[in-house]
Design a protein around this nucleic acid. Structure first.
Length: 426
RNA sequence: GGAGAGUUGGCAGAGUGGUAAUGCACCGGACUCGAAAUCCGGCGAACCGGUAAAACGGCGCGCAGGUUCAAUUCCUGUACUCUCCUCCA
């Protein structure tokens, strides 16, 4: 959520900044008009409330002295009615202001490429070079099925399309990967947590999946109370400190968690229908940071480096993309995507997204800190995948495949695989 | 699932229709070479409006409604915490 005061002060700047994110100038103008009305009502109602407070004090005094206050009481009855009417108007205007405000995306940082979609993304750097195969590399789903470590058919039978079973060394590879990732992040100072996988609407609002993106998630109703299966651990990790005021000395806070992620993938029909790239349920190791505002961009670089480090240690070629303003997520001011090389598709595919959400989520979720002078400020929040585990399995299967269909286990993972160095061909 | 108790400033903790005591902590001053102790004074969450900045005002006793001229106090609903019972991986 943006600061309404900032929108009041710099409306033209806001319009310009949000134009490439699909926000029209008319929306901002409407918001400001409603905000002006709202503040006029506030002044009017507070004036009456002041009057009521003063007269009520008089009434109290008269009553204490056993006098007659019926004239004042009658007057205040009328004032009370006026207040009631004004407050009702105010509630209505508040609702209208909030409706628009919570649907405005974050302001892109100054160095973010401006553009409406992914065509305007910029490659920042590339690491390593894709391997040259002396044979035609197979897709990971073919490898996985042949090796008996992935079973998409039974996933579909039992749950539906976009579900999978991992088996045997496939399941162990997934487990090895996330243990490896969590260990690496722990070394960098992230505290490992196991959060709830179901969250309430307030949490979904705090990280701004709600109210705009209700279609993308699975929500279950339990005795009338909705709970949503987390689409990412960002939700429970970032809401961990919601409605709290931290001490400045506590910052920065680094958290990491492995969780399953659940996404309805509404609107992605026909895309990545095979394999591990786009499933309704997948594991992801997430990193979340709470930092002071002045540190947030430096922390974003570190966060991105921490995600990259996993790919480097697995020796998987990747590139770093700076997302264009129109391609970044709703709450992000600046996002780097990491894309890993997928040989069978002859392209790079997203495996991590690292974002600085500045104070956007902190304002929604009311996450603040108190500085040495006792002043209260919003924290900045960041999140990044480190990494999407299923996609990492896909990348390993494809990049580490041998001509006979066997898979060499990356050296860094061998200790996590109990010494297994190869997934043998069948 | 059942029963009871609780939720008030950084902490502790009173109040119970007339508009939030008190203690500790914190800040300033006195005393002192300095400190402690003592004394005097002050500050009280967070938020909103207002202002050039102030002043000032509103709100504020878990949350949401209601009754009332007036609600921390009464009524209704609800969340969470604790204790006991019940059940359970």
């Amino acid at each position: 959520m943006l600061d309404i005061k900032l929108i009041r002060q710099k409306p033209e700047w806001i319009k310009d900044k949000l134009a490439s994110r699909g926000v029209t100038a008319a929306e901002i103008d409407e918001l400001l008009a409603l905000d002006t009305q709202r503040r006029e009502k506030i002044v009017a109602t507070e004036e009456l409330k002041k009057q009521r407070n003063q007269v009520s004090a008089e009434i109290a005094k008269v009553k204490r002295e056993h006098g007659d206050a019926s004239a004042q009481i009658a007057a205040m009855r009328a004032v009370g009615d006026q207040i009631k009417t004004l407050d009702a108007d105010l509630t209505d205007l508040d609702g209208q202001v909030t409706y628009i405000l919570v649907r405005l995306p974050n302001i892109p940082a100054d160095d973010v490429p401006v553009g409406p979609n992914e065509d305007y993304n910029q490659e920042v750097r590339k690491w390593s070079t894709p391997r040259q195969f002396e044979f035609t590399p197979q897709a990971h789903w073919d490898l996985g099925e042949k090796l008996g470590i992935l079973d998409f058919e039974r996933g579909a039978k039992v749950a539906g399309t976009r579900f999978v079973y991992y088996k045997g060394l496939g399941a162990k590879l997934e487990r090895a990967l996330y243990n490896f990732m969590l260990d690496e992040h722990s070394k960098e100072g992230y505290q490992e947590v196991i959060p709830p996988y179901l969250v309430n609407n307030e949490a979904m609002f705090g990280t701004s999946q709600f109210p705009k993106f209700t279609e993308d998630v699975y929500t279950i109703i339990n005795e009338g109370e909705p709970l949503t299966l987390i689409p990412t651990a960002e939700v429970p990790l970032t809401n961990y400190y919601s409605h709290e005021i931290l001490d400045e000395a506590q910052l920065p806070v680094y958290l990491t968690a492995l969780t399953p992620c659940f996404r309805s993938e509404a609107g992605s029909a026909g895309r990545d229908t095979r394999g591990l790239i786009r499933l309704h349920q997948f594991n992801k190791v997430e990193m979340v940071k709470y930092v002071k505002p002045e540190d947030s961009y430096q922390e974003l670089d570190k966060l991105t480096a921490d995600a990259e480090d996993i790919l480097r240690k697995l020796n998987l070629p990747y590139r770093v993309i700076a997302l264009a303003s129109g391609d970044a997520s709703f709450s992000s001011a600046k996002t780097y995507d990491l894309e890993v090389w997928i040989p069978a598709q002859n392209t790079y595919r997203e495996i991590s997204s690292c974002s600085n959400c500045t104070d956007f989520q902190a304002r929604r979720a009311q996450i603040r800190y108190r500085d040495a002078e006792g002043q209260v400020h919003l924290v900045n929040t960041l999140n990044g995948s480190g990494l999407a585990v299923g996609r990492t399995v896909a990348a390993i299967l494809e990049n580490y495949q041998n001509e006979d269909g066997s898979i060499t286990i990356p050296a860094a993972l061998v200790p996590y695989m109990n010494g297994v160095t190869t997934i043998p061909a069948k």
